[in-house]
């Protein structure tokens, strides 16, 4: 009887004047997914727009199978695992550095916003940070290629330009959410802790930090999302390895199957990383149930 079970105000069992049994949920989901693949297949088969130049779902699956077995991709000698590992490491490293800097900075700015909180760090730091924030991380790509070199480290080439762009992408969401997390704490929790005898340090450790944690983790989760966006952009432009690099390289070589495979793998890794963050968040905060 609930509204939610109706489609556009049509009673579900009375479609076209006839009793229509509603298919079970799993079947509806399956229809949706199968429909997507059928549309994709049909677009390629019947050359909708220039889809004729692209690969269909079946070829993509076959190609994925080949690359999963370790075939080299995009004219190089590396397997897709190497490229996936490069992109993943860049996201992890870039986001980690961003978190290490943004969380303390956010806590500092957030706690100093209160009246009588000592040095007004927020006034000294916020304007500088806020003036950099509107520049989209991808716009940093040319500048960072210019300024950050590729450094060889024990046989690997570390592209610090790509790392920097990922760092910028993750830094601001984490910072903003950390500040918000601290500011949204109701003052009475702090007063309660003080009245129970907590020192300033203890208030921070037992009240301010845990209460900001859900927001901080939301920020990290957003940061990882932006990390994947920026890593792909940076690799396309500046990479020598990575999933972004091979997708674009494949386009140059007109290996359309790798374009599709690259997209699938990037999507899967992005999805997996947000699932992992969600897991960690739930583990870290049994008392909260946040949606990252």
């Amino acid at each position: 009887m609930s509204t939610r079970e109706r489609v556009l105000g049509i009673d579900r069992r009375q479609l076209l004047g006839r009793e229509v049994p509603l298919p079970p949920r799993a079947l509806r989901w399956a229809t949706s997914v199968v429909g997507f693949f059928v549309l994709w297949w049909a677009a390629v088969e019947y050359s909708f727009l220039n889809f004729g130049l692209f690969v269909g779902p079946v070829e993509t699956l076959v190609a994925i199978y080949g690359y999963v077995l370790g075939d080299p991709v995009a004219g190089g000698s590396q397997s897709i695992y190497i490229h996936a590992a490069y992109s993943t490491y860049r996201v992890v490293a870039g986001v980690s550095i961003a978190a290490l800097l943004a969380i303390p900075l956010g806590l500092l700015i957030g706690t100093s916003t209160r009246a009588g909180a000592g040095i007004e760090w927020n006034n000294y730091l916020s304007p500088a940070v806020e003036s950099l924030r509107p520049i989209p991380p991808v716009a940093w790509v040319p500048a960072s290629i210019l300024l950050f070199p590729v450094v060889p480290v024990v046989g690997f080439s570390v592209n610090t330009a790509v790392l920097f762009v990922v760092f910028i992408g993750a830094f601001f969401p984490i910072l903003v959410n950390t500040i918000e997390g601290v500011r949204n704490l109701d003052d009475e929790f702090r007063r309660a802790a003080q009245s129970l005898g907590a020192s300033d340090r203890q208030v921070f450790r037992h009240v301010i930090f845990p209460s900001a944690l859900p927001s901080i983790l939301t920020g990290v989760s957003l940061g990882i999302g932006l990390g994947w966006i920026t890593v792909v952009a940076a690799e396309i432009v500046a990479g020598n390895y990575g999933l972004g690099y091979i997708t674009f390289q494949a386009y140059r070589l007109l290996q359309t199957d790798i374009i599709a495979v690259g997209m699938v793998v990037i999507g899967a890794l992005g999805y997996a990383s947000s699932a992992i963050v969600q897991r960690i968040a739930n583990r870290a905060m049994p008392w909260s149930d946040i949606d990252t």
Binding site: E5, R25, S32, G35, F54
Partner: peptide
């Protein structure tokens, strides 16, 4: 509408995790 969502959302959810930028080679082609 749960029913409308069940028929549409899973397909969108397949596409959503792919960062838009990764679509660039595809869009140039297609």
């Amino acid at each position: 509408s749960v029913v409308f969502g069940d028929f549409t959302y899973p397909a969108l959810e397949l596409v959503r995790p792919i960062p838009p930028i990764a679509w660039i080679p595809f869009t140039i082609l297609v």
